[in-house]
Design a protein around this nucleic acid. Structure first.
Lengths: 322, 322
DNA sequence: TGACTCCTTGCACATATGTTCAGAGTGCTT
DNA sequence: AAGCACTCTGAACATATGTGCAAGGAGTCA
């Protein structure tokens, strides 16, 4: 065998691929794989880790479709939303909940996003957690769009949002369109003016053509307020105004009431999130919710018809359907 | 919590599903899962085994499409066939090779077969090995058709073939259309007559409408002859006649020469396998080959244009492209 | 009810896998 | 060539997982 050797010496990925095939498909033990690959068992273990982490190995749980859990069915009947209820023990802390829901979503998100698609993404604690666990998936000509601005008056919220978005764009090998504006303008007129800029129009057009939107819901007045509400984006007066207007939550810093209405909420005129009508035009709208403090806000978002697919931990799902 | 408990007590499958979710998606340890499910770690281990064996967990290896192995690319260029080359150590015995290739095919076959499809299946050592490892997949209104008769003059080849076919039909929850005829008739006229029977016409029609065909190639004159050639289906005179006619192999007991031609091979007039033209009309034609003794036969099948997808062990693939 | 089979469970042990760590290799700089 | 920062390796250890086995139901039958 002069030149036509086993794998055409591409690189380490190739070994990982072979190892994965031998391990997951042919059921060999790592020891055996080590022999075939002329390396140590430890290395095989590492190769396999890499294979999983880099998305070479794709593990899916395929629930026999005739058996959506009782709660999932209830949610579908009641809200016309496909729910994915994630098992999390009742005694788990809110941090645990978030982490576990985020992990699940990160693992499955690839199913919803593919080449040539545009995905709009909000930012906040939940998206942050999700972004940290994404399984890479190779796509072509895909695009990530930031849904709402992230600057605030006193800190570098920009970096925070940027980092989240960049993780998505890296994992999916997608172009990233950032939204370099504050979360809220001081004067609605500034926004109106800014929106006419050419760069902004391109971004807004992308938002209008999204295939998938990914977001959580914010819950301003719960025991565990969301990132926006504690990060210095809103002052006390503004919070009071929201409360007066009957706001129960937000999606991408667009606020709504319990019945899903948004009219006459002053802050919305200065915010940078997408019109809810734009969101509703998006074919797939994925909402991630962890922790029952978000139930009221979630109900509002459901009433507003913002969601098509809901990822939610079991306890919160139960709370949702009472 | 009076009646609305965690999973709506359906059954054991439900636990398996939850366990799989927790293990494969949320990366919990079996110990932790045991706690959440209020059972022992051993039981969780068993639940997970069941989840894998019953196809609840689907593990796929997704080669970055831009990196088909060198050999796979060569085969594609040379024969216009999508090859799946399976890593098997060079020193592996033929039995090992077969077993490992069969396992791989059995695991991935679900990708090619779905609801409302018709799959034609041949029988023989290779199909036998594949049938033993199939991962179940739930389908509706699917149909398995036997490609060629399995009776012979002296033993119960029927049971052998039946068992193979039944394994497929069970795994995919598909109806099974058997082919209750001998592998070869003694007199071509009998076949002609039989083919006019209504029951047979229905079967032949199904073969004509197959979406997928699954088969290996037989190698009559190699060191390791295939099942047909040692099972008492052919006597010495018949073998000699094949040899005289320049036959190099068969697919579903239809014989062909090295150039893929079949004209003037007398045994074909008495055989029960599908016309090669029928086979060639099938959109997807999956051939499974393990062991380099089948290379010549495989070349013939490729020349005859019988194959669209080829599963083959690495050594044999190398032999194929020299 | 008692005898029986069949199935499930958890324990204890045997294996298999993940991870730390010290040392070897590589490429770059001086 | 020596120094340095870096990455990769395999041995040894720490965990996690798979499995034989005996014990404990649940169902059936006489």
């Amino acid at each position: 065998m002069p030149h036509s050797n086993d794998p055409p010496l591409s690189d380490r990925t190739n070994d990982a691929l072979t190892a994965a095939q031998l391990y997951y498909v042919q059921d060999l033990t790592m020891e055996a794989i080590a022999q075939e690959l002329h390396t140590s068992r430890s290395s095989v273990s590492r190769l396999l880790s890499q294979a999983r982490a880099s998305g070479l190995v794709d593990i899916q749980i395929r629930s026999p479709l005739d058996a959506p859990s009782r709660v999932e069915k209830l949610i579908l009947d009641r809200f016309q939303v496909t729910a994915h209820v994630l098992p999390v023990p009742d005694h788990a802390s809110d941090v645990d909940r978030l982490e576990r829901v985020a992990l699940s979503v990160a693992r499955i998100l690839g199913e919803f996003f593919d080449s040539n698609m545009i995905m709009g993404i909000a930012w906040g604690s939940t998206m942050n957690a999700v972004s940290r666990h994404l399984t890479p998936k190779r796509t072509h000509n895909a695009q990530i769009v930031q849904l709402n601005g992230a600057g605030n008056t006193r800190s570098t919220g920009l970096d925070y949002a940027n980092e989240i978005l960049r993780r998505f764009s890296n994992a999916y090998d997608a172009r990233l369109e950032q939204f370099p504006v504050p979360t809220f303008f001081d004067d609605p007129a500034t926004r109106t003016a800014y929106w006419r800029e050419r760069g902004l129009r391109r971004l807004l057009e992308m938002q209008g053509n999204m295939d998938v939107a990914l977001f959580s819901v914010g819950s301003p007045f719960s025991m565990v307020p969301s990132h926006v509400y504690v990060g210095g984006y809103l002052d006390d007066d503004e919070l009071a105004a929201l409360s007066d207007a009957g706001v129960v939550g937000d999606v991408a810093t667009v606020f709504y009431r319990a019945d899903g209405s948004t009219d006459g909420i002053p802050l919305n005129d200065r915010g940078t999130g997408p019109e809810l009508s734009v969101l509703r035009r998006t074919p797939r709208r994925i909402c991630v919710v962890a922790g029952s403090s978000k139930v009221d806000s979630l109900r509002g978002a459901l009433a507003a018809g913002l969601i098509t697919d809901l990822f939610i931990d079991e306890g919160t799902a139960r709370a949702l359907v009472e």
